[in-house]
Simulated assay, not measured.
Amino acid sequence: MIEVYIDGASAGNPGPSGAGIFIKGNGLNKKYSIPLGIISNHEAEFQAFLHALKICIEHKFTVVSFRTDSELVNRAVEKEFVKNELFAPMLQEALQLSKQFDLFFMKWIPSRENNVADELARKAIQKSRTGEK
C-alpha cells in the first residue's frame, strides 16, 4: 500500500501558499513542494489533496492511503459534503479522482505526524513568493 501524506499551508489567509506531498511505500520515497499562489489555507489543503491524487494516478498507484492533518478535508471526503461553496468544486473533483483507485483510504492524523508534508508545504510557500516553479 502507498501512504500519501499531504499538507497545505499559507503565509497569511489568504497569502502565498504551497502544497506538500510525501509519498512512501513499496520502496518509494517521493517528495513534492508545489507553489499554489495566493489562496487561503483551507484552499491550499484541498489543492494539496488534488495534486496528490493526480500524482498517484499518473504513477498508476491502485491502493492508496491518504493522511492529512486537515480536519476540514478529512471530514469533507468522509461525508462527501462541504458547507462552504468555495470548496465544493474541489471536493467533487477529488471524489471523482478517488474513484480511479482500487482501494482508497483517507485518515486524519495529528500535525506532529505530518512533519514531512508540512515542511514541503512551507518550502512551496517560499517558491510561491519568489515565483519559482
Rank of each mutant, 00 (worst) to 15 (best):
I34N: 00
V82I: 12
H42I: 10
G20Y: 02
A76I: 01
L36A: 07
L50Y: 02
I34S: 01
I34F: 04
G20L: 04
L50D: 03
L53R: 06
T62A: 10
V73P: 01
H59S: 13
K54A: 09
V64D: 02
H51V: 01
K31Y: 10
K24A: 12
N26R: 15
S65G: 15
F49A: 05
K24W: 11
I34G: 00
A48T: 01
Y32D: 02
K54Y: 07
K24I: 15
C56V: 09
K24D: 13
V63H: 13
S17D: 06
E45V: 05
H59E: 14
T68F: 05
L50I: 12
S17C: 07
H51G: 00
Q47E: 11
G25E: 11
I23S: 10
I57G: 11
I21T: 03
T62W: 06
S17Q: 04
E78M: 13
E71A: 10
A44E: 00
K54V: 04
G20W: 00
A19S: 11
Q47M: 12
V64G: 02
S40E: 05
F66Q: 01
F66Y: 08
V63F: 12
Y32V: 01
V63N: 14
V77S: 04
A19T: 02
Y32T: 02
T62C: 07
N13Q: 11
L50S: 05
P14L: 09
R67A: 08
K60D: 14
E71M: 13
K60S: 15
V73S: 04
I57M: 13
I38D: 08
Q47Y: 08
I23F: 12
G25T: 11
F61M: 12
F49Q: 00
N29Q: 15
C56Q: 09
F22Y: 15
F22H: 15
G25D: 13
E80Y: 08
E58V: 07
N74D: 10
A11E: 14
D69P: 08
V64R: 01
P16Y: 10
H51R: 10
E43S: 12
G15M: 09
S40Y: 04
E71T: 09
V73C: 06
P14M: 09
I55Y: 03
L53V: 08
N29C: 15
I34M: 06
L36R: 02
I34K: 03
G12K: 12
G37F: 03
I21H: 00
G37R: 05
F61H: 12
